[in-house]
């Protein structure tokens, strides 16, 4: 019982974070059919925003709110700086500009802050633990689970029940037709980047909460995780991204529990082998998603 509970909480909290990361990446991919390589830096922006507000004495929730807003602004800035100027050109052009924007943000952090880890203010509750059915559980894992449930529900509501959400789903399958119904292209794209930034900001807080510090390269792992989760789940489906996130967390956690100390160093090699197996079995990912053609 204790073991099961512990395992479940580990999978769900890691999976919740992974699912949110993947969703933030896939919402932009779905509409533009382009991977935003500067996505990880949105998490970095949230982290450094927290660090810079560290000594301000503001309540933690206010700082967290500001950090998320900074990530949203950085997300929208990605659109204006890296995507919009070259969107009509080639895929390669956008790949390069989004890499460039990512490097630019990282180097700004290196230059103006520091290459070394910087502490991030965390509320006490992040370091407390509770015992559930004998399993000693960090409260932050429970917070992550709750945050993931709330955000996934909010996201589902936004996409299914609001006109903006329906328009975004439509634009993801056929952008030109959506425009011919009067849906403004720029509004949809900006909204996608803003939602992406919002998810990255919240995930950033939870993610950095595990370590307590931020470094310029903090975004690399989340970007990789989000990318792998969406590839497993199917690049075209938001449900797929969420499922992919939880599946990846299940694989990682199972390996954590079963691999011996020496083998644990090679955990990522095991994870990637499994991912390759899944892709050999289903090259398009687990969920097909709507048929969608052209890039916009």
């Amino acid at each position: 019982m204790t073991f099961t509970v512990q395992f479940l909480i580990d999978v769900l909290s890691l999976g919740g974070a992974y699912a949110l990361m993947a969703l933030g990446l896939v919402i932009v991919y779905g509409i533009l059919k382009l991977v935003n390589f500067a996505y990880g830096e949105l998490i970095m922006v949230a982290g450094y925003a927290m660090f810079l507000m560290g000594g301000s004495g503001l309540p933690w929730l206010v700082m967290a709110g500001v950090a998320v807003i900074m990530a949203v602004i950085a997300g929208i800035a990605t659109d204006y700086v890296a995507f919009r100027p070259v969107r009509a050109k080639s895929v390669t052009a956008v790949l390069i500009t989004s890499f460039a924007f990512s490097t630019l943000l990282q180097n700004a952090a290196l230059l103006f802050i520091s290459p070394r880890p910087r502490p991030v203010p965390l509320p006490d509750i992040f370091s407390q633990t509770v015992t559930i059915f004998g399993a000693i559980t960090p409260v932050r894992n429970l917070i992550t689970i709750v945050a993931a449930i709330v955000l996934l529900a909010l996201f589902a509501w936004l996409m299914r029940r609001t006109v903006l959400g329906i328009a975004m789903r439509a634009a993801a399958t056929n952008f030109t037709m959506a425009r011919m119904l009067g849906v403004p292209a720029n509004l949809i794209i900006t909204s996608a980047f803003a939602i992406s930034g919002f998810l990255a900001g919240v995930v950033g807080l939870l993610w950095i909460g595990r370590i307590g510090t931020v470094v310029p390269g903090i975004g690399l792992e989340p970007l990789l995780v989000a990318f792998i989760a969406t590839v497993i789940g199917g690049m075209r489906s938001m449900t797929g991204a969420v499922i992919g996130g939880f599946l990846l967390a299940l694989i990682d956690t199972t390996l954590n529990y079963t691999l011996s100390q020496e083998l644990l160093k090679f955990r990522d090699a095991f994870t990637f082998s499994l991912v390759i197996l899944i892709l050999l079995w289903r090259p398009d990912g687990l969920i097909k998603g709507p048929a969608s053609g052209q890039r916009t």
């Binding site: 006109v163 329906i166 789903r169 399958t173 056929n174 037709m177 959506a178 011919m180 009067g182």
Partner: peptide, 24 residues
């Protein structure tokens, strides 16, 4: 405009398709 490719949004419901028609 109704293009010849008859572009319904396949994964959206009939009602949602109509809702989008009234976007403006």
């Amino acid at each position: 405009t109704v293009p010849e490719t008859r572009d319904v949004f396949p994964d959206l419901t009939v009602t949602e398709n109509l809702t989008l028609g009234s976007y403006t």
